[in-house]
């Protein structure tokens, strides 16, 4: 088993456990639980097979769904994020990110924060639209996306700086 695969497996499991045992219990201000498992999708190696990436993201979301009784909302949100990630990467790291052998772990912190913020926005928007599943509650969807999204971005950056980021300097 090579080290890239191993670190991905470890990240998959560690983020799920962190989400389940710690983040779901935070309940900041009564309802804000940061969502950190999407870091797996954000940090997944760029040069890998997209087919397996989509299936893995779907399974990741589905696992969270079984714990939170949300049907398939997390699965759909994770899947959508995985599907649009190439567009986000192109937007943030420029057209030729595939040829430049991009390592997100070693990219500048401001680029990473931008990528994380856009990912969180897309993920949470899809997630809460499906959780509420009611067009008349669109304001609540936006409110949850904003507040939970801010907490997710904060926790994501903290985790990234603590465990992931290896700056070039």
């Amino acid at each position: 088993m090579n080290s890239a695969l191993l670190s991905n497996v470890v990240r998959f499991i560690a983020l799920l456990l962190l989400q389940f045992f710690v983040m779901d219990q935070v309940e900041f201000m009564g309802y804000i639980c940061p969502i950190v498992y999407l870091l797996f999708i954000v940090l997944y190696p760029v040069d890998n097979n997209r087919w397996s990436f989509l299936i893995l993201s779907f399974l990741l979301g589905l696992t969270v769904d079984t714990f939170q009784d949300t049907g398939g909302a997390h699965a759909a949100a994770s899947l959508t994020l995985a599907f649009v990630r190439p567009v986000l990467l192109k937007l943030i790291y420029g057209e030729g990110y595939l040829t430049k052998n991009l390592k997100i772990m070693r990219s500048p912190l401001d680029r990473f924060i931008l990528l994380l913020a856009l990912s969180v926005l897309i993920h949470h928007l899809v997630l809460y639209m499906l959780v509420y599943f009611n067009i008349s509650q669109v304001l609540q969807v936006l409110q949850m996306t904003l507040f939970v999204g801010l907490s997710s971005i904060f926790m994501g950056v903290v985790l990234f700086v603590l465990f992931g980021w290896r700056s070039k300097s």
């Binding site: 398939g72 759909a76 899947l79």
Partner: peptide, 19 residues
């Protein structure tokens, strides 16, 4: 990739509607 995305999304939506 698009077809895989759409089919998995369909499964997720069915789960959501069921829930």
């Amino acid at each position: 990739n698009l077809l895989l995305y759409l089919s998995l999304l369909l499964i997720a939506l069915v789960f959501t509607i069921q829930s």
